[in-house]
Design a protein around this nucleic acid. Structure first.
Length: 1039
RNA sequence: GGGUCCUUGGCUCAGUUGGUUAGAGCGUCUCGUUUACACCGAGAAGGCCAUAGGUUCGAAUCCUAUAGGACCCACCA
């Protein structure tokens, strides 16, 4: 059966459908790869939910997917887990900015925590769903069933567990230390979240007072209002006599300052004045000195608002740092204390996200201690982080992480050496709440946090009319059903583990409708059913009887603790329920669907409310209440959770194992950790790679990944970064729409070297698009001209020289591609494939196949092999074409294996190519139309037989007629003379001779060098000799 | 102050342990619509591989300096 294919490949027509086919096949999920044994797991660096996919993501997706598709075809049990990162500070900053644009000047104040969080969540969810679709557009073959979000339940539970573990090991502590503070963002940030910019500053040299013996210098005069010491080098003859002395100086601060002269080895006697004014509150370095000499004290003079506080004194309080600086300088001048002013530049730390200058402020925050010995181990986290690149984790050489390119180890080690304790608490709201509760001075860091969200069932006619007639176990009314569907949408992103509902119809039905959205398990629990009747609301049994006379006749028939349950019994039942949760659903996030009276009694026992207060309790339909059980403790009155959130990298650090289900002992964790390969840009080496290593070695006692590949940044053609503010961004989706995903992927992978930046521009994509189209047309030709299209399993027997040659080339290609992909050498692999496909196969072999005929099998075989080899790079077009060949998916076909072939065809075929090219050249030089057939005679001592056998190819490809007539003009190539009926340009000949003579000269010098002939390997010498021989012979003929 | 990377034809870049007269794509030029493909075909021009030394029989490749460019870390009293 003949098939028809369009003249040009239109990516748009096929891509979405192909992706759907893949996704529906189930093969993205390794559980469905039945024959695969050895696991191969790669995690997607989760894109931030701060916007949409950019080119960097496109590059990462191309790398990830090419890797994973290759491994899948090789027979690995491949898993690529897709993810997204809530990106705490980045997302909140983004949303706040948007809100400000819309007129909300101070979103935190105006909206409050809950409302702002809702806004951020809305934004994040929206962005997330866009990103996920874009990942699909990229063709990424990830297992969507294992999708992980840093802010979902599993990942949050990992965060909490990790925090608790580190806290109980003493590695996380709460301390008063100097931290980086962004006034604009009103939050701390880690040392790595600063960007430094060179700015002009003035250095002021001054004395605190006229009788103070040591001058000091500063670029931040206003902080000097909080100075507590002056540090000098202990070996400094000039100053060492003052060490230990105290001076009282009045510089205008609230209280006169007591300046202690202390010794510090780090003070350089030759730099500046040779002495350092120590401001413990507003410099990390000075704070470290304070920690060694606590008696000097610490005086913060700048507040969280970036303004001078009361310690700074009446004159300064309330001023901005800039105003205070001017004022202080003026004071120095007036009092003749200013010695010198010098202009210089200085790198100023700014907040990466908010852009303002960072203030160093002392605060009580949470930190990870990187230097403390880990309990049960003989080393610190810092040491652990180093070991994985040197001696291996725990000294195990098998647990050394391989990094490509390995030069990044250097900068990593340097970073580790300078690592200070990591400040992990942030004052922003979007993020994992710090899992610590306070009650006065008491601190609780629970091992388990169980969450109970309670909601009411939908209404029935019975509820609405407050009837107690007929059966009480009635189904929902229609309107309620609608309302529950609405409500269910809200629960969709809550990530509940389980729904527990009352056995009554209305509750069960409610739970089932909600579960259509959540798709989790439902547990029916009698403990939370409706009470029969009770005296709880102050009504006596008799009153109820009075109000609803029919009631007695319709007794509820299900099994609850008696039909005369009273208030105390109801509370007892609620307590029992809590106990039940505590033993059976520890650590879960539970949605409870129950009845108002029960929920009220639950509220009473948890909140320790009085009966009277409890009467005010209302939980209108559609709303939820939330309770927590911390390590079994559920009465949490008086306890409040820390309002701060965790640094976003705290959760990203656990990515390799939280993605696989930790802290639960899941099968995935056992199978896939450590993960096989990790890929990231060098800009997040410290942020992310370092933290993953820290977390994984600590929590799992293992490395997070075996192999890490570092890629560079994509830049515009002018070398600048792509950025929104420059407006030079290229939207990957627009590129896909115009050129197709395959073209985009190929242009991203071709010509990139690991760790190096690469420039990206549209022409590159155009080139790739052209190639994709070429592949389409190659296939179109083969498929449309073949008599039968079938799978060719075995390499067909070569019949001609060309057959032998192309198969030899193909087998080398299989070998090199396999090797390159094993080494993650994507660029080299694609270049070699490109070359073979376009030049060897299309330009030569297919053209020959038009002459030699009957090559269906061999053409199909090569095409099939090529589609396989290309599949990891350009999955869409290859799969589209494959559909015409096989009903099975190319995605799960097996990777080609190279057959052994002899190399002898290479030289002979090369000769034929040389002849053809030489003739084409002459024609071109003489402006003869390529297709005009000219007469020509070939003469060779060595290749007579070859020429005779291959004459058809020569005649057809060079468009000549081979004759026995000898013509006057000849061109010469090694060992062959080509007599041709057209005139040859003498200039060309002369040029050829000059070049050849030069070449001979080089070879002769080389060979006459005794050192060379003595020391070089014999095969190299022989080859050089042969070259010289051939060249000399050719030269003779040319002359 | 410490460290890293880059410098290869007009542009963008490959070049895997040192071994053909250094490759590709785009661009330029010439010729060409031969039914797979003008998103094409045939061909051409264009490079002392930044500079200077060194190691070696042999260097774009290894070493050392220098220049220019980019970046990271620390410090910045």
């Amino acid at each position: 059966m003949k098939i028809e294919l369009d003249k040009a490949y239109e990516a748009k027509k096929f891509e979405d459908e192909i992706y759907k086919t893949w996704e529906e096949s189930g093969f993205f999920n390794p559980d469905n790869l039945k024959n695969a044994k050895e696991p191969y797991c790669v995690l997607m660096p989760p894109p931030n939910v701060t916007g949409i996919l950019h080119l960097g993501h496109a590059l990462e997706n191309s790398l990830l997917d090419t890797e994973i598709r290759y491994r899948r075809m090789c027979g690995y049990k491949t898993l690529l887990i897709p993810g997204a990162d809530h990106a705490a500070i980045a997302t909140q900053a983004r949303v706040e900015k948007e809100l400000q644009k819309n007129g909300i000047k101070n979103p935190r104040e105006e909206l409050g925590r809950e409302k702002l969080l809702e806004e951020i969540k809305k934004y994040a969810e929206n962005s997330k769903s866009k990103i996920l679709n874009q990942i699909r557009k990229m063709g990424t073959s990830c297992d969507w069933s294992r999708f992980a979000y840093t802010f979902d339940e599993t990942r949050s539970s990992a965060v909490n567990t990790l925090f608790q573990k580190m806290y109980s090991d003493g590695l996380i502590y709460r301390g008063y230390r100097v931290v980086n503070w962004t006034v604009k963002g009103q939050s701390t940030c880690s040392d790595d979240e600063l960007i430094y910019e060179e700015e002009p500053v003035t250095i002021y040299t001054f004395k605190y007072s006229h009788d103070f013996p040591i001058p000091i210098a500063t670029t931040r005069p206003e902080t000097k209002l909080g100075d507590c010491a002056v540090a000098v080098n202990p070996n400094d003859d000039k100053y060492k006599k003052f060490i230990g002395q105290k001076f009282t100086v009045d510089v205008g601060a609230l209280n006169p300052l007591t300046i202690t002269i202390i010794a510090d080895d780090n003070v350089d006697t030759n730099y500046g004045t040779g002495a350092v004014g120590v401001t413990p509150a507003h410099s990390m370095i000075d704070f470290e000195m304070y920690e060694k000499n606590k008696n000097i004290g610490i005086i913060p003079v700048i507040g969280k608002d970036g303004k001078m506080n009361e310690n700074a004194g009446k004159d300064y309080q309330g001023l901005s740092t800039k105003e205070a600086r001017e004022k202080f300088i003026n004071w120095l001048k007036e009092n003749n204390l200013l010695i010198k002013e010098e202009e210089t530049t200085h790198s100023v730390g700014k907040s990466d996200r908010f852009g303002d200058i960072i203030e160093a402020l002392p605060m009580r925050q949470w930190f990870i201690d990187v230097n403390k010995t880990i309990p049960g181990k003989n080393k610190s986290l810092k040491q652990s982080m180093k070991d994985v690149f040197t001696i291996g984790h725990n000294g195990n050489k098998k647990k050394i992480i391989k990094i490509t390119p390995d030069r990044f180890v250097n900068s990593y080690m340097q970073w580790i050496d300078n690592l200070r304790d990591w400040c992990i608490s942030r004052q922003i709201w979007w993020g994992h709440r710090i899992p610590v509760w306070y009650n006065g001075e008491e601190i609780l860091v629970p091992k388990t946090i169980t969450e109970i969200h309670v909601t009411r069932h939908g209404l029935t006619d019975w509820n609405k009319e407050e009837r107690i007639q007929g059966s009480t176990d009635t189904p929902l009314d229609e309107q309620s059903v609608e309302e529950i569907y609405e409500m269910a949408k809200k629960f969709k992103n809550e990530n509940f583990d389980i729904i527990i509902c009352s056995p009554l119809k209305r509750a069960r039905q409610t739970a089932e409708i909600i579960n259509e959205e959540l798709k989790i398990s439902i547990e029916i629990n009698k403990l939370i059913t409706e009470r029969d009747y009770a005296d709880f609301e102050g009504k006596q049994k008799s009153e109820i009887k009075e109000k609803y006379p029919e009631y007695e006749k319709n007794k509820i028939s299900f099994d609850i603790p008696g039909d005369e349950e009273n208030y105390e019994e109801l509370k007892e039942r609620a307590t029992k329920f809590i106990e039940y949760i505590k033993t059976n659903h520890v650590g879960k996030k539970i949605l409870v669907v129950s009845h108002h009276a029960f929920l009220r009694s639950l509220n009473i026992i948890i909140e320790d409310a009085t009966n009277e207060d409890a009467l005010k309790y209302k939980l209108p339909f559609g709303t939820t209440d939330k309770y927590q059980i911390l390590d079994g403790q559920y009465k949490l009155k008086g306890w409040t959770q820390d309002p701060d959130t965790l640094d976003t990298w705290f959760s990203s650090g656990s990515w390799t194992f939280s993605c696989l289900g930790w802290p639960n002992k899941t099968k995935d964790l056992k199978t896939y950790h450590p993960t096989s390969w990790m890929q990231m840009g060098y800009e997040i080496l410290f942020f992310w790679m370092a933290r993953m290593i820290l977390m994984s070695t600590y929590a799992l006692d293992d490395i997070p990944f075996k192999d890490v590949y570092i890629h560079g940044i994509l830049r515009a053609k002018d070398g600048r970064k792509f950025s929104k503010s420059l407006g030079n961004g290229l939207d990957p989706i627009e590129i896909i729409n115009e050129y197709g995903t395959d073209a985009l992927r190929l242009s991203l992978l071709k010509g990139i070297a690991p760790g190096n930046d690469a420039k990206f521009y549209e022409e590159k994509v155009m080139g790739s698009r052209n190639f994709v189209n070429k592949l389409w047309n190659i296939s179109r030709y083969i498929l449309m001209s073949a008599d039968t299209i079938k799978i060719i399993k075995k390499q067909p027997k070569p019949n001609t020289l060309a057959d032998k040659w192309i198969l030899r080339k193909l087998n080398s290609l299989i070998e090199s591609t396999t090797k390159d992909l094993n080494d993650h050498n994507f660029s080299m692999a694609s270049n070699a494939l490109y070359d073979f496909t376009w030049t060897d196969f299309a330009d030569w072999y297919i053209e020959i196949s038009k002459v030699e005929k009957n090559k269906d099998e061999i053409l199909l075989y090569i095409l099939q092999t090529l589609l396989k080899l290309w599949h990891p790079f350009i999955p869409f077009i290859t799969e589209t074409l494959w559909k015409n060949i096989d009903s099975k998916l190319l995605m799960v076909s097996s990777w080609p294996k190279a057959n052994k072939t002899k190399p002898d065809s290479l030289i002979e075929f090369g000769k034929i190519q040389e002849i053809i090219i030489a003739i084409r050249n002459i024609k071109n030089d003489n402006k003869i139309d390529t297709k005009t057939i000219i007469n020509c005679h070939l003469e060779s001592d060595k290749y007579t037989k070859l020429i005779k056998e291959q004459s058809a190819i020569i005649e057809n490809l060079a468009k000549v007629k081979l004759t026995s007539d000898i013509y006057k003009d000849t061109i010469h190539i090694t060992n062959i003379d080509i007599y041709i009926e057209i005139k040859i340009n003498d200039e060309d000949k002369k040029k050829q001779i000059i070049e050849l003579e030069k070449y001979i000269n080089i070879l002769e010098t080389k060979l006459s060098n005794k050192q060379f002939t003595d020391r070089a390997p014999s095969e190299i010498i022989d080859a050089e000799k042969k070259k010289l021989e051939d060249a000399k012979e050719l030269l003779k003929k040319l002359k």
